[in-house]
Design a protein around this nucleic acid. Sequence first.
DNA 1: GCCCAGGTGAAGT
DNA 2: ACTTCACATGGG
Length: 286
Amino acid sequence: MAEVVVESTGDDVRFSKIAPFSLKDTLMCGQAFRWQSTGNDVCAYTGVVRGKVLRVRQEGECLILEGPTNEDSVAMTRDYFALDVDLGEIERRLREIDPALGTAIDFAPGIRLLRQDPWEAMVTFIISARNSIPLIRRSVELLAEKYGDPIPEGRNGDACEAYFAFPSPEMLAGADIEGLLQCRTGFKAPYISEAAERIASGEFDLAGVGDLEYAEAKSRLMEFRGIGNKVADCILLFAFGFYGAFPIDVWVTRIMRYFFFDSKKVPLRVISEFAHEKFGDLAGYA
DNA sequence: GCCCAGGTGAAGT
DNA sequence: ACTTCACATGGG
């Protein structure tokens, strides 16, 4: 556990003692899809988290939550960025595991794993299958605009942009396939619809997945159509904090083959087993 | 036109 | 268990 320091600076709240930290890489590495760069010159981003608009920026090694803030938004930020996780210690442990990880950390240090909303992550990563990151971002944004509640900004000055909460399972359960298709969800539209209905009806307890063991949690998620190995691991890693999850996409496949399998073709199952054995409970960070 | 993009489900060996 | 193919959609 790291000892995060939280202090007010005018309207803003500053989180310090969280080094190593890169806000840009944390938000733009592809684990989250609703953040926009809003700083002209400085590192600043605006995003929607759990139905609230959050504005954050990085100063030195510190994370700044821009005001007006309240107890809720401060607690939410701390939780969302998992600031109580000691990333310095994790990066030290990864370096000891393999020199390749040291090279990767030198290239892009300070990438924190976020703790995102499970339902939003579920839909987002269902959409991610056979898709490109810009199009994933667009689909998620379209869903929010079409089905999500508008968020009153409550901030003077820039009332030009509208923000929308990510729609709840209930809201998407009521959507027809045609509407979901208008959000460019393609052949994943029925998967989203089915998932929304199962969760909205109470048949499936999504929040409860966090209380299960990793293997059990993963197989429960994989009962949904549209959720296979990779998407299940993404949800577990980016929403539930299962840091041993190891999502294998095309790029992870390539880099794992390159470093550990002499660039040979290897079944994904073999890569997965290798990663879990070598990286253990830090596989996701690796 | 053709191939690829954060894969997955279904059908066929 | 392993292999093959279709799947919407958009960009290069």
